[in-house]
């Protein structure tokens, strides 16, 4: 399997990448390539040009900024997994990064790439959604910020417009209880269902592979705010959600798994 033919250009700066994107409608950014290339090999994505931003070194950083950690979009999963700053300030994010794919994926894939791709079955987008991260987006018009819960719009669809690049992810520190429950059949696979739970003030819950995009389990969050028990809240895991069906899990099995995993996630988040 290999992609249709395409042009390739390596950008040396964000502004250069933006100007190329603005001049070519079908151009796509590529960083680690672990989301885009599989689609291209299946010829489900056929960009006319790839703009490689993988070597823009000033977009790879992890910085403690007091109340939050700022992570450059090109920071690789492996770096997030092993960062002392993230382990100390947002331990769930480090843990989730350690569960993405296998070691070779984690050495190539970037946080910004995974989040921009917005796959509902991916671990990291759901994690930053539960963590209430803020996304910093750069374009020819300057810089804007979007909250994670307003960023994911649909199946592989995000708030990013052509000519915009996700440049930084700002993650509030979250050292209270947390849990990430990833249910799959092989260690390297996407989650069949995953649940991220973060206690940071209120309790936030996001779900993996329960919809076409990463989503928050709002019914669970509201029930908890209203004083519901863990069991009562977990029973609402798929309230208002229409999960996909595939070979590994029918929609009804996914709903069941979501309840089980939300319950386990809440129990674990309450115990650490």
């Amino acid at each position: 399997m290999f992609p249709s033919s395409f042009d390739y250009v390596r950008a040396s700066s964000v502004s250069e990448a933006i100007s190329i994107l603005n001049n070519e409608e079908d151009a796509k950014l590529i960083a680690g390539g672990h989301s885009l290339l599989p689609l291209m090999k299946l010829r489900l994505a056929n960009p006319s040009k790839l703009v490689d931003i993988g070597r823009i070194s000033d977009l790879s950083y992890i910085e403690d900024r007091g109340d939050h950690v700022a992570i450059g979009a090109l920071t690789r999963h492996h770096a997030i997994e092993n960062s002392q700053v993230i382990k100390a300030s947002v331990p769930m994010l480090s843990h989730v990064a350690s569960l993405v794919g296998d070691p070779s994926v984690r050495h190539r894939g970037t946080l910004g790439g995974s989040v921009s791709h917005g796959d509902g079955a991916s671990d990291l987008p759901a994690a930053i959604l539960a963590l209430d991260a803020t996304l910093v987006i750069t374009s020819g018009n300057g810089v804007r910020e979007v909250e994670a819960k307003n960023f994911f719009k649909g199946f592989l669809e995000t708030d990013l417009n052509q000519g915009e690049i996700l440049t930084e992810i700002k993650v509030p520190k979250a050292t209270g209880g947390w849990s990430y429950q990833k249910f799959n059949r092989r260690a390297q696979d996407w989650a069949i269902v995953g649940v991220a739970a973060v206690r940071n003030g209120s309790t936030k819950i996001s779900l993996v592979n329960m919809a076409s995009m990463p989503i928050r389990a709002e019914a669970v969050e509201n029930a908890l705010s209203g004083g519901a028990s863990i069991d009562e809240a977990a029973a609402l895991a798929s309230e208002g959600i229409d999960p996909p069906s595939d070979l590994n899990a029918s929609a009804d099995y996914r709903r069941h798994l979501a309840s089980v995993l939300v319950r386990r996630a809440l129990a674990e988040a309450n115990s650490n």
Partner: peptide, 9 residues
């Protein structure tokens, strides 16, 4: 990705 050849894990 769909045909689940297991790994050592």
């Amino acid at each position: 990705a769909d045909y689940l050849v297991p790994s050592a894990a």
